[in-house]
Simulated assay, not measured.
Amino acid sequence: MLKDLQGKGFISVPYVNIHGDIPDGGFPTFMDSPRYATGYTSLFNVIGTVVETHMLKSYKQRVKATYDYMLCNIDYMEQNYNVIKQKRAENLNQYKIGDKYAIAW
Rank of each mutant, 00 (worst) to 15 (best):
L2I: 14
K3R: 15
D4I: 10
D4F: 06
L5N: 04
Q6R: 15
Q6Y: 13
Q6V: 06
G7L: 13
G7S: 14
K8I: 08
K8F: 11
G9Y: 02
I11L: 00
S12F: 06
V13I: 10
V13T: 06
P14F: 13
N17F: 14
N17I: 14
I18T: 05
I18P: 01
H19K: 15
H19R: 15
H19L: 15
G20P: 00
D21M: 07
D21T: 09
I22S: 12
I22E: 13
I22F: 08
I22R: 15
I22W: 08
P23M: 07
G26Q: 06
G26F: 06
F27N: 07
F27S: 07
T29G: 10
R35K: 14
A37Y: 10
A37H: 07
A37I: 15
A37R: 08
T38A: 08
Y40P: 02
Y40R: 13
T41W: 07
F44G: 01
F44T: 00
N45K: 11
N45H: 13
N45S: 06
V46H: 02
I47D: 14
G48Y: 00
T49S: 09
V50F: 02
V51Q: 02
E52N: 10
T53D: 12
H54A: 05
M55W: 15
K57T: 12
K57Y: 14
S58T: 04
Y59I: 04
Y59P: 01
Y59F: 04
R62M: 05
V63A: 09
V63G: 02
V63Q: 09
K64H: 04
K64D: 05
A65L: 07
T66I: 04
Y67P: 00
Y67S: 03
D68S: 00
D68Y: 03
M70W: 00
C72I: 09
D75I: 08
M77V: 14
E78K: 15
E78P: 09
E78L: 15
N80C: 02
N80W: 02
N80R: 06
N80Y: 03
Y81F: 09
V83R: 13
K85D: 05
K85S: 10
K85C: 04
Q86I: 11
Q86T: 14
K87L: 03
R88H: 08
R88W: 08
A89D: 10
A89Q: 13
E90M: 10
N91S: 09
L92R: 10
N93F: 12
Y95T: 06
K96V: 09
I97N: 07
G98D: 06
K100F: 01
Y101T: 11
Y101L: 12
A102M: 02
A102Q: 00
I103Y: 05
A104Y: 11
W105L: 09
